[in-house]
Design a protein around this nucleic acid. Structure first.
Length: 881
RNA sequence: GGAGGCUUAGCUCAGCUGGUAGAGCGCUCGCCUCACACGCGAGAGGUCACAGAUUCGAGUUCUGUAGUCUCCACCA
């Protein structure tokens, strides 16, 4: 049974082998089992051609940790993987590739050829991210991997579109939308990022018609839009302008007569109190325009250039046109004043270009009816956010949501299933491609050119991946609704909110009951990791260097739900060391192992009961933390137990038995060591799947575990009520305290461990300390231990160390400076006295004794007793000097 | 303008339902002790941003202040 293992754990050698073994054995397959409860997580599908970054690594690690935990708990734990077609992002990449390598645009190829290119691109890069997820140890059921443009998922999209259209919840209309001139597509509100940019506020004079030398001055940040002005607005109660309301003014350069209207939208205090109205290029102006029947004059084209019909400005880019117009206004004497002005500009979340609001015919989802149910499920507690505060953010958004613009002027995506009839002009919307108009049966029908917003399909992800809309899908019946959704707070609006109202609307239920929100992974300076900054840390490189387990542990520990974390590579080093620690602990066990079955012995020693009792508590606490999604807390507890309790103490405590002559004691030590390690490996497995599996495979198991099985399929440890030993824990604490006191004293005197001394221990609890005699000998560096209830009369040549339960004498007095020793004792006495005084005051307070819980009061009394005992011993010692 | 987070040891952060402040890294001292120097033992270092309130008792609850970050809305 003895095995030779390398001194240092080599994750690079282990991880690939273990993952392959899991895969080969079918460990990732999740089957519907009527005897089990399902537990389902759907992965936030990464962009199909994307690369794994640290954000994915954290997201995936959290999900994998949960799913492994639940799997071990006996659930049919399903983690559905997959990828998103990522409309704009992917199309931009392929277009860029086309431009760089062939100098062509998508229009050169045409829609059909271009889409062939995108599919080819997807085939080429689509598998990359899946392979990278496997490197993270992800235990997804890969056979169920889905892609948002799969046949089934596309059918779900069509079904939803038709259903919402028929309910009147999808409509097409000319509205002012956010337009990206670079991507040449409409964007939803969520896709616009507002950024503060320095700008100018230009004051421009508009002459009033028919009144020589009279004029209004308007203030604008966007002078180029004046070409599309169709009015000027003032506040109805603004006395300065009361006389000109109803008159018209002459738009400079364009020479168009436009009305002056009064509208409450205008803020009298801002600028001059006069606002130029450009309904076709400003959402607020659009609203005012509706109220006053102002003309919508579109002057900026889809590509951001000025429309035809505006002379020399036509064809110019909007910012070039701005310069030209300002120059002409100045020359014409219309420009009154230029001020600096901090301006909040909407930008495209994909390419960063300034968004151009413009009127355009687009498709929308009517949100108000859908939002109602999405709000209710949160209010009624059917959907919970962890942490709770994100429910407010969600609710606030949902309450103020505008209609969702779902059409995109792209080619890559789900094409809108709507056909316009050339004859009757009516719309046919259908799940299967129609051959004729549903209204007049004309064959002359044309499909919409636009595709749907990427998020339209991801909104269906939790149920479309499980077979919906086929209501008879067994997977759907068994695994839906899913349990937890794990994602970053940055896509609550894009994705989570839309999944919720979609789930409610189409399946009648919230698609999950819990949303676990995590933060962003930032660099060590707290900056967002990004390509443009070049500060991204590649998770794969970290895995190569420190191992996947170390990376995973770094990502889940030391951070709490919803909060951003900074990524420090050094912490991976720390957790690599932790993996190595586990490796060496088990290596130690292997080297000492003579048993071939792991079961607890009948007779347990004091230290055995101590570690088993502590293990019991660890199991209880970790399980509770995991259930409450406190993964970081759970991880820290396991780390502390393994390193401090198991390695630093328990292994050391068993050494005298392992190396002794008593065969029974030797065997029982092995059994307990093995049992505890096995249990704790299970607790750690969800966090560090590879090393735990590797070590577990090498350990002997109980009879119930057959060959060819895996740790990842073992059951989660349960608390064993027979293994609670509070008395033994207390006894061990006394012994450990004594050991610590001796060590501290020796360390202060610079006595090396190699110098063994005779240790005399004086105590009223001699029976307890006798049980720990071997431990005292080994760990307090004694060559001989004498335990007695009576202090020796002659203590010359002795250094005395006291704890509240014992006095220890070590013959090292020659190393001690008596005066220093006195001073040290005085300091210690003062400290103990102070603590005791504080405690006496507290216990002397009748309010405390009466109102505090009994156990708290008792704990303080115990503490007082201990301190008094300690004080007495210290005082005696001081007096003897 | 509105909402929220953060402010705890030199650095980065944990700290659940209130009951004597913790980790990792860093630092100091001593050790290559037969699992591990990716290690062992010992230690230094916090009036838990500030001011009030509740309580027998507050890092932990409430109110306010300051600094900082983020999200939402958006005034041309």
């Amino acid at each position: 049974m003895k095995k030779e293992l390398p001194k240092t754990y080599e994750p690079q050698e282990v991880e690939g082998r273990i993952y392959a073994a899991w895969e080969q054995a079918g460990c990732f397959k999740t089957v519907r089992d009527p005897d089990k409860k399902p537990f389902t997580i759907v992965i936030p599908p990464p962009n199909v051609t994307g690369q794994l970054h640290m954000g994915h690594a954290m997201d995936s690690t959290l999900q994998d940790t949960l799913i492994r935990f639940k799997r071990m708990q006996g659930y049919a734990a399903l983690w559905v993987p997959g990828t998103d077609h990522a409309g704009i992002a992917t199309q931009i990449k392929v277009e860029e590739d086309l431009r760089v390598n062939e100098g062509r645009t998508r229009y050169d190829l045409g829609r059909e050829k271009f889409l062939e290119r995108v599919w080819a691109w997807k085939e080429k890069y689509g598998g990359r991210i899946v392979e990278q997820q496997k490197k993270l140890g992800a235990s997804c059921d890969w056979d169920r991997a889905r892609f948002t443009m799969d046949e089934g998922l596309s059918a779900a999209v069509r079904h939803v579109f038709v259903s919402l259209y028929n309910k009147g919840l999808i409509y097409k209309g000319s509205r002012i939308v956010n337009w990206c001139p670079h991507c040449t597509t409409a964007l939803s509100d969520a896709e616009v990022e507002y950024k503060d940019k320095p700008g100018k506020l230009w004051h421009i004079r508009y002459p009033i018609v028919g009144e020589a030398d009279k004029y209004v001055i308007v203030a604008t940040t966007r002078p180029e839009t004046m070409l599309g002005d169709s009015g000027v607005a003032v506040h109805p109660e603004d006395e300065r302008y009361a006389d000109i309301v109803g008159k018209t003014c002459l738009l400079p350069l364009v020479e168009r007569e436009i009305p002056i209207v009064a509208d409450e939208y205008v803020d009298r205090a801002f600028g001059t109190g006069c606002v130029k109205m450009t309904p076709a290029h400003d959402p607020n102006d659009f609203e005012v325009g509706l109220r006053h029947s102002l003309e919508n004059i579109r002057v900026i084209e889809d590509d951001g250039t000025i429309s035809q019909g505006y002379g020399k400005y036509s064809g110019l880019d909007r910012y070039e046109a701005r310069k030209a117009i300002l120059a002409d206004l100045e020359a014409g004497g219309y420009l009154v004043k230029t001020e600096d002005h901090q301006h909040n500009v909407g930008t495209c979340y994909r390419c960063g270009s300034d968004v151009e609001p413009l009127i355009s015919a687009q498709w929308f989802v009517k949100m108000e009816p859908l939002a109602r149910e999405a709000l209710r499920v949160v209010q009624d507690g059917e959907l919970k956010f962890v942490p709770d505060r994100f429910a407010k953010i969600y609710t606030n958004w949902m309450e103020n949501v505008h209609d969702w613009c779902i059409s995109r002027q792209l080619w890559w995506g789900h094409r809108i299933p709507a056909w316009t009839c050339d004859d009757c002009g009516q719309m046919t919307v259908a799940e299967t491609d129609p051959t004729e108009c549903a209204h007049c049966h004309s064959k002359r029908i044309r499909q919409e050119e636009d595709v749907l917003d990427t998020w339209f399909s991801s909104a269906l992800w939790p149920f479309s991946t499980l077979g919906w809309p086929d209501e008879n899908s067994e997977d759907l019946k068994y695994f839906y609704p899913t349990n937890v959704l794990v994602t970053g707070y940055d896509i609550i609006f894009f994705w989570v909110a839309r999944m919720v109202f979609s789930g409610c609307e189409h399946t009648g239920r919230s698609p999950f009951h819990t949303v676990l929100i995590h933060g962003l992974v930032r660099d060590e300076k707290g900056r967002k990791m990004s390509k443009s900054l070049g500060n991204g840390i590649d998770p794969l490189e970290i895995i190569d260097q420190y191992g996947c387990d170390a990376l995973r542990f770094n990502l889940v520990s030391g951070n709490s739900p919803g909060n951003d974390m900074r990524f420090f590579t050094e912490r991976c080093e720390a957790y690599r060391n932790f993996a190595n620690k586990i490796w060496n602990a088990s290596r130690f066990l292997m080297m000492n192992l003579t048993i071939d079955r792991c079961a607890l012995p009948d007779r347990l020693e004091l230290e055995d009961k101590w570690i088993l009792s502590r293990l019991n508590r660890l199991i209880a606490e970790v399980t509770e933390n995991m259930e409450k999604y406190e993964l970081g807390v759970a991880a820290a507890k396991i780390y502390d137990f393994i390193w401090d309790d198991y390695c630093d103490w328990y292994i050391e405590l068993t050494k005298s038995r392992l190396q002794g002559q008593d065969e029974e004691a030797k065997t029982s030590a092995q059994q307990v060591l093995c049992h505890v390690l096995t249990q704790v490996l299970k607790l750690l497995h969800p966090f560090m799947p590879f090393i735990t599996e590797e070590v577990w495979q090498a350990l002997p198991h109980g009879a119930e575990v057959g060959e060819g099985t895996f740790l990842m399929l073992q059951s989660w440890p349960a608390v064993d009520p027979h293994l609670d030993f509070p008395e033994e824990e207390k006894s061990m604490a006394l012994i450990m305290e004594a050991i610590g006191a001796v060590r501290t004293r020796r360390s202060e005197m610079n006595v090396p461990p190699s110098k063994k001394t005779h240790l005399t221990l004086v105590t009223a609890d001699a029976p307890i300390f006798r049980q720990g005699e071997a431990h005292l000998k080994r760990l307090a560096y004694a060559d001989q231990v004498t335990i007695t209830t009576d202090a020796p009369a002659d203590q010359t040549g002795m250094v005395s160390v006291v704890t509240h339960a014992a006095q220890m004498l070590i013959p090292l007095a020659e190393l001690v400076d008596l005066e220093q020793e006195k001073a040290r004792l005085d300091r210690e006495l003062a400290k103990v006295q102070k603590d005791l005084d504080g405690l006496k005051t507290k216990l002397g307070n009748p309010n405390f004794v009466e109102k505090a819980p009994a156990n708290v009061v008792q704990a303080e009394r115990d503490r007082q007793e201990k301190l008094e005992a300690l004080l007495e011993k210290l005082t005696q010692q001081r007096q003897g000097m």
